[in-house]
Amino acid sequence: MAHYRASDSKREQYRRYLEKAGVVDSLTSVFVSLYEQPEKPTNALEFIKQHLGAVGQTSSETEALQQEVIDLRQRCACLVEENEDLKSRLQHYEPVSEDGGAAN
């Protein structure tokens, strides 16, 4: 019986460790999300992996990533505008022929 109690005590310590670390809450959240899906995904494991990763991110990490996305979109828009400007300038020096290629 002493062996049983030691094993039970270790389990209880491990359970408290998982709760304290937030693992139990994260897993519960992901499982609830999967349960509430109207159409169950074909690959439940992939769903859990994707959503578990999202649960683990802190709000500051998420905000930093969102800001990076905004910055990159603005940079992309500027580059597209610059590209259009350069194309029009180039067209001034190299008129396009009727077939769409540059005239020589």
Rank of each mutant, 00 (worst) to 15 (best):
H92T: 13
K10Y: 03
L86H: 04
D25R: 10
S9L: 10
E63M: 15
Q91V: 14
Y14T: 11
D8Q: 08
E19L: 13
E19A: 12
R5V: 05
E81N: 08
P38C: 13
A2W: 07
K40H: 10
A64F: 05
G101T: 14
R11P: 00
G22A: 13
E98M: 04
N83T: 11
L86Y: 11
T62F: 04
R16W: 01
S33K: 08
S59A: 13
Q13W: 05
G22M: 12
R11E: 04
Q91S: 15
E46M: 01
Q91E: 15
A102M: 10
V24Q: 07
D8N: 06
I70A: 13
P95E: 14
S60D: 09
G53I: 06
V55L: 01
R73D: 07
E68K: 14
V24N: 05
S26E: 09
E63K: 15
A54H: 04
E61C: 05
E19N: 11
V69Q: 11
S7C: 07
T58W: 03
R75G: 01
S33P: 00
S26G: 14
P38F: 11
D85L: 14
A102W: 02
L27A: 03
Y17V: 02
V96H: 02
K20N: 12
V96W: 03
V69R: 14
N43K: 13
V30K: 00
R75A: 10
Y93N: 10
V96S: 07
E61D: 03
S88L: 15
K40R: 15
L45S: 10
